[in-house]
Every structure is written in C-alpha cells, then in structure tokens.
Computed example of a mutant assay.
Amino acid sequence: MTIDIDIFECRGGDILACDIVNKDGVKLVSRGTTLNDYIIEKLKQFEINNVKVIYPPEYIKKNRYNYEKFEYGYKKSIQLVKDIVNDLSTGKALNIDKVTSATELIYEHIHQNDICMLLNFLDRIKVTDEYTYLHSINVAFYCMLLAKWIDLSEYEIKKAVQAGLLHDIGKSRIPTSILNKPAKLTNEEFEIIKKHPVYGYDILSESEFSDLDIKRAVLLHHERINCSGYPFGISGEKIGLLARIVSIADVYDAMTSNRVYKKKVTPFTTFEMFITEGYSGFDAYLTTEFINHMATYLIGSSVKLDNGENGKIVYIPPNNLLCPIVYSNGEYIDMKKSNIRIIEMI
C-alpha cells in the first residue's frame, strides 16, 4: 500500500514509493529509498511538500521474524546447492527437484519490504569461506532483483533465479585444485576454467532440464556485448536477456566478495567499473537499472573511511552514484568535494 503524506509528517524509515524530482525534473531521490533525517531536510529545502511512501504497518513488527525466516531459507538453499554440486561431482544426474526447491526458497523474498534486509544479509554473509556455493545463491538473488526491477513476469523472474543458481554448475567438472588456487591462475589453468560454461550447458542437456533460455544463459553468461567474452565471442542480442542479466549479477557478486585469490571491493568501486568500462561489455540498460536500484539500498549502510574513521551513508545522489554523502564524527562528508574515500562496508 502507498500513501501520500506531508513532508513534515515523514519519519526516518519511511520508504519512497515514487522518484522525487525538483522543479526542473532532476531526480533528487530514487523510488525505494529509505528516508532518514538528512534526506527529509534536503527535500524540505527543495520545497518538496508531499511524498508517496510505502506503508505496511505490520512490517516493523515482523522484521525480526522476516530476518530469521530469510536466514533459514538462505542456509537451506546453500545445502541444496551443495547437494546438487556434490551429486554432479560424483557422476550423478542433476536433481531438478532440488533446483526447483532452491528457486522457490529464493523467490519467497522478492517483496519490496524484504529487499533491504536481503541485500544487507548478502553483504554480511560474504565473509564466510564457502564462496563456490554462496556465489551461486547470491547471483540467483541479484538476478531475481534485476529481473523484478525491469518488470519481468513472475515466470521470467523464476527463470532468472534458476539461471543464476545454475550459471556455474559446469565448475563441478573443473579440478578443485584450480577452483581453490590461492593465487593467480596460469594461462593454461584459465583456459580450463573458461570451459565451465560449456560443461554447464552439457550437464543441463544430459539431464531432463528442458528450458532452452536457461541453458543458453548458463552457456553464455561470460559473453560480452563487445565480443570480448567467452566461449564464443558473440555480441549483443545474440547473447540473450537471461545471460545478460546473469553476467551483471555474476560480476557484481564476484567483485564484492572475498575470494581465495582476491579481496572484495566496495559496491561503489564496482559501480565505477560498470560506469567507466562496463557499458562496453555489459547491456547498458540492464546495468543502469541494476546500479541505480542497488544504490538506493546502500543508504543507511555503515562504512569505514580511508582516514581511519567510521561513518554512515545518508544520501546517494541519483545523478552521481559514486559520490555518496557520509555522516561521520558529527559532520556530513560529500565525497564529491572531499578526498576522503570509502574503503570498506561494515
């Protein structure tokens, strides 16, 4: 439910139901943003009199229950993915029932009120050491969100979830000594890794899994629209929508996760990669939708700054996602005007 309220009745925690624009049509705050005192005061300064907010009164009461339910479902999904990978590693067929069960567990959390909690949980869970399994689950969640944000149907969103879950299934045929190597791969080892999309496609084709779109997404999720990807070096529309969705979710989670050979970076570093070089390799429309929506859920996040202090993100300008406003030690730091930078999400 959405309600239209006076700006002076807004309170921290209200969630915007619509974009807020100024008199010139410039976006000030994006739909889905959780309001705080800083944003509310800025809206007053811009003479914004009324805003539409999402208002489910029962949400605050159920928040703890929702978190525990999500954590339970997430852990159950991890176990299902482990079972699937272990079965494949021992020569068993793909268990489609387990894929379906994991898909349904993930899809349960598509609703607006769960997204902020979901993303916070995904960021925290990345400190664990089960990257291979967690990555598949996380990519499935990011695929679900991106598919939702571009208004795909429930049927297509669930396909995106399955594509995310299965995108790296071919790695079950890659030696663990290569997958878990705590150093940069040799050229020969990387050539072996690059076979996993084909292996994944083969695994799905050898099973009773019949959805061609998902199989193509598994096969093509490392392709890039500028022909720089693998295994075929194809471009543009030939890659297919699901594969283009998975490619963005895959790279975002990989960059913002600790891996055996590389430390994670902040979401802002990942945004910068997408904005400065990513548009040549990734679908521009999908990338823009993804980072614009993701940014709204970073507001309120605690961060570590390169001056040794901690702070909290209070605002991210929609027209400059790389320069948030951070509250630290009693002052607001505008990253556009300051040399201080965020080095870690905490």
Rank of each mutant, 00 (worst) to 15 (best):
A140M: 08
N307G: 07
V161I: 11
I313Q: 09
V51L: 02
E191W: 12
F46H: 09
K171G: 07
H167Y: 02
C10R: 05
D168R: 06
P318M: 07
T287Q: 08
Y155S: 15
T132W: 05
K184W: 12
K238V: 09
G32D: 00
N180S: 14
I225F: 00
E130G: 10
G278V: 05
L88D: 05
N258D: 10
H111T: 15
R11H: 15
E344H: 09
H135S: 01
G12V: 07
M335E: 10
L35T: 00
R124M: 14
I48M: 01
K194S: 06
I174W: 00
M273A: 14
I157M: 10
T270G: 07
S172M: 05
I20H: 01
S257I: 04
Y199W: 05
I225N: 02
K98N: 14
S210M: 12
K184I: 10
T266A: 05
P175R: 10
I193K: 02
I3A: 08
I203P: 04
E277F: 09
G300M: 09
L305Q: 02
T186R: 06
G308L: 07
M1G: 12
T2M: 10
K263I: 05
I40Y: 03
I137G: 05
K98V: 00
I157S: 01
Y142W: 13
D14K: 04
N307D: 14
A243Y: 03
D4F: 13
S302R: 15
D334C: 04
T266V: 04
E344W: 08
Y332L: 04
V218C: 03
E108Y: 14
K262N: 11
V246F: 12
K44G: 08
R124T: 13
G236H: 12
N22Q: 06
P56L: 13
E108W: 11
V139Q: 00
D253G: 04
Y65S: 11
M335I: 01
E272F: 10
Y55L: 05
L146D: 07
V303D: 01
V51R: 00
G73A: 13
T34E: 09
T128N: 15
A93S: 15
E208M: 12
T103S: 08
V26Q: 15
E189F: 04
S328W: 08
E309I: 07
T90N: 13
M345E: 06
I313W: 09
K336F: 12
P182E: 00
K52F: 12
I5W: 01
R64G: 06
F290Y: 06
Y142F: 15
I15V: 11
S328R: 01
N95P: 03
P267H: 02
L146M: 04
L286M: 03
Y67N: 03
Y285P: 13
I234G: 04
I115K: 01
S302V: 14
P175M: 09
Y59D: 15
K76A: 13
F232C: 05
L286R: 11
I5R: 06
A295E: 08
R341F: 03
L43V: 02
F282P: 02
D253H: 07
S301P: 14
E309F: 12
I137S: 04
K23W: 11
